[in-house]
Design a protein around this nucleic acid. Structure first.
Length: 741
DNA sequence: GCGGATCAC
DNA sequence: CATGGTGATCCGC
């Protein structure tokens, strides 16, 4: 079924229309997939969305063609070279295998839908979907029988299942139940990793040894506990690493579990027959590419075609693929995850009306700024995201010299970016701020003061000179960027609907000034108040970044918990509502700059003292102390940590689709289980022979370890590939931080 | 550093 | 009639 495209396409065109939600998934056994596919196709055909999907598809096909051509060009010497490269990489990766941990991945069954049913028993047994007519978050199992799935537009779902009941999302409820599960998880692993409201990874190694039980038993216990606590069922996967545990939890869903023993042969057998699409990080496109360009369908084939993998993909990507083929995954518990960007975006009915578009932009800027201030964040890079009426996505970014967080500042720069794209018809506008809390450099002794001054100058005088300064990086960018890249030429038609080869920065400035003025008129008092608030937030954020960096650095150098994790998180200093000390409660208005500094210094001294007596890491505190100014910054800025959890409930919704990957796997699950018994053909190397093999190739037996330590695959930056579920929704962040108490 | 793209939830 | 929002990462410039 891999081939014969051309023949079937003409007769059954729907077969070539692939969406994320037409894949198999738990609870879809008896579904007439052909019929579902046909309905989806018919509902989609002719729409702008559909046309865009076709364009994307065509682009991917082109890419695949190029790769095949590249493969064909490989000479015999090339191939033998890459074969060696692959073998070396495989050995090195193999050397990193760690079978000493027991990981459990817990995944709630149809979480949102289950919660809604719990609070409204009338829904029981009826096909129901949580979400809206435009988009479904999750569907219960009755609905799945009709082919209704997460990420499917509601109007298509209704076509598939006319009686489908729609229930709007209610994140307060989900958070409440999620917190209940958290309580259970923490008992088994105080450092468990919350992957989302309904998913968590637990390292139960210690529990197993202490209780002398198996991971299987522990998982059963956890699931029972979760059920008693919440009345909700969940599924679990037990495996030696997180990547495998995640795959396993999907196998006997719902309300089941699957154990993959800590045994290399079992792992290899399991992974070998596994369709690559089941693995986190391999999505629709990657699957397509690997299948059609290299003929790879299973993980086993990845290793078999290792030479082609290494020839075609970058180092980090091929490492990821190979490690998947070997059933490797992360076994460590990473330190606190830090947000790297914050964004806000909205879809609306497409319009080319500039006034309307600017109004939308204004709203987004406002929302984003609000979120940033809630979190005490600010950043230097602003990215405008646009989706055209034709569903094409564009982004335009500027990196400023200073951090911003006030909505007026965001809007000012965003307006310039948008202006440069006009005229254009849009259906979505989004804004993102990244490079959070970084020291912009050149911030003098008193950052708070300077920043306030800058804010006032920037707003009140609106000096064009300053605007030009900040736009330095904007100029070159304009002339630089183009869509003439030959590879993409066929896909860039829409991009030419505007001509961005020439822009007048001054024109942008003028317009944004105008805009600013309009915005300010009428409530200047209110605006002034805002300045204070946001400016103090600016310094706050900067500081927070420092402290966060420190926490990171420290935890790298020290074994065990980060020094500051307990003390900092419990007793962080910041101004509640911008006037009340979070530690002692004393009230002090924002403009009492000097008094505030004194006050924070007092707490700083207190804190240093506490840390010194609490820890034996003298060198560290000493080093910290060398720069009192910085420390003071830290203290000043230390943001109200995640206990801002209350904001969680009211926070912007973040849709969460329970395990979007499919699993008509009950069959493949039994296959896999059966396959575990007989010793399968060895895919790579036997671990016991590893040292011998390494040496036979002139590699020292521990080379693999050393290289792996340096290679990017194991480094934090490529976590997404190795561990793609490192997602930080607001809800998740609360969970993640909470666990560190 | 920017922009396109993929992925997860 | 008509297809979401947030965050992360990677690649190729």
């Amino acid at each position: 079924m891999a081939k014969s495209d051309s023949s079937t396409d003409a007769a059954r065109p729907w077969q070539s229309y692939h969406t994320v939600y037409t894949n198999a998934k738990a609870g879809m056994d008896g579904v007439d997939k052909e019929k579902v596919q046909r309905v989806v196709y018919k509902m989609s055909k002719g729409s702008k969305y559909f046309e865009n999907e076709e364009r994307k598809e065509a682009f991917i096909r082109q890419k695949i063609e190029n790769m095949r051509a590249q493969c064909a060009k490989l000479t015999a010497p090339d191939l033998s070279h890459y074969q060696m490269v692959a073998e070396k990489r495989i050995l090195e990766l193999e050397a990193t295998r760690d079978l000493s941990r027991v990981w459990v991945h817990v995944d709630m069954d149809a979480f949102y839908a289950a919660v809604e049913t719990l609070s409204n028993p009338l829904l029981e047994g009826k096909p129901m979907a949580v979400g809206s007519v435009s988009m479904i978050s999750t569907a219960n199992y009755e609905a799945r029988k009709f082919g209704v799935r997460a990420a499917m537009p509601g109007f298509i779902a209704r076509k598939l299942c006319p009686e489908l009941i729609f229930v709007p999302t209610d994140f307060k409820k989900y958070t409440y139940y999620s917190d209940l599960t958290t309580k259970v998880f923490r008992k088994y692993d105080p450092n468990f990793m919350a992957a989302s409201l309904d998913e968590a990874y637990l390292d139960v190694t210690e529990v197993c040894t202490e209780k002398g039980t198996s991971g299987e038993e522990v998982a059963k216990e956890i699931r029972n506990c979760v059920f008693e606590e919440t009345g909700l069922t969940c599924s679990a996967g037990i495996a030696p690493n997180r990547l495998l545990a995640k795959v396993c939890s999907d196998i006997n869903k719902p309300n089941g579990q699957f154990v993959l023993p800590n045994n290399r042969m079992a792992v290899m057998t399991f992974i070998s027959s596994l369709p690559i699409r089941k693995i986190g990080g391999i999505g629709k496109v990657t699957e397509h590419i690997l299948r059609d360009a290299l003929g790879i369908n299973t993980s086993e084939e990845i290793v078999q075609k290792g030479s082609y993998i290494c020839a075609l993909f970058s180092h980090s990507t091929s490492d990821f693929f190979l490690s998947v083929g070997l059933g490797l995954g992360r076994t460590d518990t990473p330190e606190v995850r830090l947000r790297k960007s914050i964004s806000s975006e909205r879809t609306f009915s497409a319009t080319g009306d500039e006034t309307l578009l600017y109004r939308k932009l204004e709203e987004i800027a406002e929302m984003l700024s609000t979120d940033m201030q809630k979190e005490g964040l600010c950043g230097r890079t602003l990215t405008l995201k646009l989706k055209t009426a034709a569903f094409e996505v564009r982004t335009r970014a500027v990196t400023l010299q200073r951090n911003i967080c006030a909505s007026a500042d965001i809007l000012k720069h965003a307006s310039k970016l948008l202006k440069a794209e006009l005229p254009i018809s849009l259906r979505l506008i989004g804004l993102r701020v990244s490079q959070l809390n970084e020291d912009g450099g050149g911030i003098p002794s008193d950052p708070t003061q300077t920043t306030i001054t800058n804010f006032i100058i920037s707003r009140n005088t609106s000096s064009p000179r300053k605007d030009m300064e900040e736009q330095i990086s904007f100029g070159p960018d304009v002339s630089d960027h183009d869509f003439m890249n030959d590879e993409k030429s066929d896909f860039s038609i829409g991009c030419h609907e505007t001509n961005h080869t020439h822009r007048d920065p001054m024109d942008c400035n003028d317009s944004s000034e105008l805009h600013d003025d309009n915005h300010t008129v009428g409530n200047s008092a209110c605006e002034v108040e805002k300045f204070h608030k946001s400016s103090s937030d600016v310094s706050a954020n900067k500081v927070e970044s420092n402290i966060r960096n420190r926490v990171n650095n420290e935890s790298n150098h020290l074994e065990g918990e980060a020094v500051s994790s307990s003390s900092n998180q419990r007793q962080q200093f910041y101004w509640v509502n911008d006037y009340k000390c979070s530690i002692c409660g004393i009230e002090m208005p924002p403009d009492f700059v000097e008094e505030r500094r004194e006050h924070s210094d007092f707490h700083l001294a207190e804190k240093l003292h506490e840390e010194e007596s609490r820890t034996c890491f003298g060198t560290l505190t000493l080093r910290q102390r060398t720069d009192l100014a910085e420390l003071r910054e830290i203290l000043h800025s230390t943001e109200g940590p995640p206990q801002t959890t209350p904001t969680l409930n009211t926070s912007p919704l973040s849709f969460s689709f329970p395990s979007p990957s499919l699993s008509a796997i009950t069959t493949s699950a039994t296959e896999a289980r059966g396959a575990l018994t007989p010793p399968a053909k060895p895919v790579a190397v036997e671990s016991e022979n590893l040292a011998v093999l390494l040496e036979s190739r002139g590699l020292s037996p521990n080379l693999g370890e050393r290289v792996a330590a340096e290679t990017s695959f194991w480094s934090p930056q490529s976590t997404a590939r190795a561990e793609p579920d490192a997602i930080d929704t607001m809800g998740m962040r609360a969970l993640v931080y909470e666990k560190r108490d």
